[in-house]
């Protein structure tokens, strides 16, 4: 019988601590769970000719998701997200490592430099790339000034410019978590490894990298997930081959106004991303305790 049981003062404190979670839970409920449920319900409904939702159960929205265009767009989206993530890690890791090993007083300055671009609006940052790389842009003017080019090449509106834009915008997402784990790394381990005869490369491979892996995994997920939903960077910096899932969703909801089909597309996208993350974290979970 538990009824008569007195709660210890410690347990009292714990229960009170849970009250602190109320704002978080309420927020998550209203802005995450409820919209997700609405999207889920919409995906099984229909519209009238003017775009109003009719709640009559149908699976037809799901049946028409899997077209060759969907597959192509999905493949393109995941390729872009994967490439961007890998490049962000390749660029971000050495940077985070460098900052993590600097003296404390320089660390905050360097981190500041990583974060400063984030103070600008996302659209402004992306437009600034256009003004640098467009055919009349700063880069071509400088190159022409030094006589390095004759006519003005077009750097933008292709895959490279989209990938460059992605790296530029998402790099801090990779750098910050990696920096956090580099900074936490106990430098005594490195001395131990070296005193046991490991050279610098082996030390990095066997000690530093595994111990900073949680940061790498967190960083890669932080870059990957928003990349999958990205549509503005491909739209502004891409050419005719930029069509991503985000653009497809935008068009289905806003241009066509078919909310049920858009909802079905979103649910399929969410499921695929979750599967992707699940496989990814299962693979890494052996080495890293991430709590996924």
């Amino acid at each position: 019988m538990n009824e008569g049981k007195q709660l210890s003062s410690n347990e009292h404190k714990n229960i009170k601590a849970y009250y602190l979670l109320i704002p978080t839970v309420a927020f998550e409920f209203i802005f995450f769970i409820v919209p997700l449920v609405i999207v889920f319900i919409y995906s099984f409904s229909q519209t009238d000719p003017f775009g109003r939702i009719r709640f009559e159960f149908t699976l037809s929205n799901y049946f028409r998701v899997f077209t060759p265009e969907f597959t192509r767009t999905m493949f393109r989206t995941f390729s872009l997200a994967t490439i961007s993530t890998i490049l962000c890690l390749i660029v971000g890791y050495p940077l985070a490592y460098y900052i993590g090993y600097k003296e404390k007083k320089y660390q905050s300055l360097l981190l500041m430099l990583v974060i400063i671009p984030f103070w600008l609006s996302f659209v402004t940052r992306t437009y600034s790339m256009i003004s640098i790389f467009s055919s009349n842009g700063i880069l071509n003017q400088v190159l022409a000034f030094f006589g390095l080019i004759k006519d003005r090449p077009q750097w933008l509106y292709n895959w490279y410019s989209v990938v460059a834009g992605m790296i530029y915008n998402y790099l801090p997402m990779a750098v910050l978590p990696i920096y956090a784990s580099v900074e936490k790394l106990d430098k005594a381990y490195l001395e131990a490894a070296q005193s046991l005869g490991a050279n610098k490369f082996v030390t990095f491979l066997k000690v530093t990298l595994p111990l900073t892996l949680p940061g790498v995994v967190a960083g890669s997920i932080l870059v990957f997930i928003p990349s999958v939903g990205e549509f503005l960077i491909p739209e502004l910096l891409g050419g005719v081959d930029w069509y991503m899932m985000g653009n497809y969703l935008w068009m289905t909801f806003l241009t066509i106004g078919n909310y049920p089909f858009g909802a079905a597309l979103s649910i399929v996208l969410i499921v695929i991303v979750l599967l992707f993350i699940a496989i990814y974290s299962k693979y890494f979970a052996k080495e890293v305790e991430l709590g996924f």
């Binding site: 000719p49 192509r72 497809y248 068009m251 289905t252 066509i256 106004g257």
Partner: peptide
């Protein structure tokens, strides 16, 4: 256009773009 008509054109538009 009705949603249906937009949808029909939209499907072709996606085929162009994707």
């Amino acid at each position: 256009f009705t949603v249906e008509e937009k949808d029909r054109m939209g499907q072709l538009w996606v085929e162009i773009k994707a």
